[in-house]
Simulated assay, not measured.
Amino acid sequence: MPNTPDRPRRVRVQRDGPLLVEGPVEVVGENGEVTVSTRFMVAVCTCRRSRIFPWCDTSHRRRGPRPGEGDAS
């Protein structure tokens, strides 16, 4: 379903996880490359560890935080 002023696109933010976006979506990368998904919901990688970036492949679950991330205790 396309987004409209009456039904805006929904984006779910998760701590330590991807952004969940109601699809279909187009993601424009830093280099201007456009990646398209027609799925009803997509997970957009925010940790940049995914092998299928910009889509999440759950790599954030398998690895600990990057140096400088997470709790300093």
Rank of each mutant, 00 (worst) to 15 (best):
Thr58Ser: 14
Pro67Thr: 05
Glu22His: 02
Arg10Ile: 08
Trp55Met: 01
His60Gly: 01
Asn31Trp: 06
Val28His: 09
Gln14Val: 15
Gly29Pro: 00
Gly70Met: 09
Asp57Ser: 12
Pro65Thr: 11
Arg62Ile: 14
Pro54Ala: 02
Glu30Val: 08
Pro8Val: 11
Val27Asp: 02
Val42Phe: 03
Thr4Leu: 04
Gly68Trp: 05
Gly68Gln: 05
Phe40Gly: 15
Gly68Thr: 09
Arg49Cys: 05
Phe53Trp: 12
Arg9Ile: 12
Gly32Glu: 01
Thr35Cys: 08
Arg48Asp: 11
Pro65Met: 10
Asn3Ala: 14
Gly68Tyr: 04
Arg62Val: 13
Arg39Ile: 08
Arg62Trp: 13
Pro65Glu: 10
Asn31Arg: 11
Glu26Val: 11
Arg39Trp: 08
Val21Arg: 03
Arg62Thr: 15
Val25His: 02
Pro54Lys: 04
Val44Ser: 06
Asp6Tyr: 10
Pro18Tyr: 01
Pro5Met: 06
Ser59Leu: 11
Gly64Arg: 08
Val11Asn: 00
Thr46Pro: 05
Pro8Met: 06
Phe53Cys: 04
Asn3Ile: 12
Ser37Ala: 08
Ser37Asn: 06
Arg39Gly: 15
Arg12His: 11
Thr38Trp: 08
Val13Gly: 04
Gly29Tyr: 01
Leu20Ser: 00
Pro18Asp: 01
Ser37His: 06
Asp57Thr: 12
Val21Ile: 07
Glu33Asn: 04
Asn31Asp: 15
Pro8Arg: 09
Gln14Arg: 13
Thr4Pro: 03
Thr46Val: 10
Leu20Tyr: 02
Gln14Thr: 15
Pro24Gly: 00
Val13Ile: 11
Asp57Leu: 10
Arg15Met: 12
Gln14Glu: 15
Arg7His: 15
Arg63Ile: 07
Gly29His: 01
Met41Gln: 09
Val21Trp: 03
Arg61Thr: 15
Val36Met: 00
Val21Tyr: 03
Met41Leu: 12
Glu26Met: 09
Arg7Asp: 13
Gly64Asn: 10
Pro67Gln: 10
Met41Val: 13
Asn31Gln: 10
Arg63Ser: 12
Arg63Phe: 12
Met41Asp: 05
Asn3Ser: 14
Val36Thr: 05
Ser37Lys: 04
Ser50Asp: 08
Glu33Lys: 07
Ile52Val: 15
Glu30Arg: 07
Val13Asn: 07
Arg10Val: 08
His60Arg: 06
Val25Gly: 00
Val13Gln: 06
Ser59Gln: 11
Asp16Ala: 03
Pro24Phe: 02
Val36Ile: 04
Glu69Arg: 07
Glu30Leu: 08
Arg63Ala: 14
Pro24Tyr: 00
Arg63Cys: 10
Arg63His: 14
Arg39Cys: 09
Asp71Pro: 06
Phe40Asn: 15
Gly29Cys: 03
Arg61Gln: 15
Pro2Phe: 13
Val28Ile: 15
Pro8Glu: 09
Val13Pro: 02
Val28Ala: 11
Phe53Met: 06
Gln14Phe: 14
Glu69Trp: 07
Cys47Thr: 04
Asn3Gly: 14
Arg48Pro: 07
Val42Tyr: 05
Pro18Ala: 01
Glu26His: 07
Trp55Pro: 00
Thr58Ile: 10
Thr58Met: 11
Arg49Met: 08
His60Phe: 03
Arg7Ala: 14
Glu33Tyr: 00
Gly70Arg: 10
Arg63Leu: 12
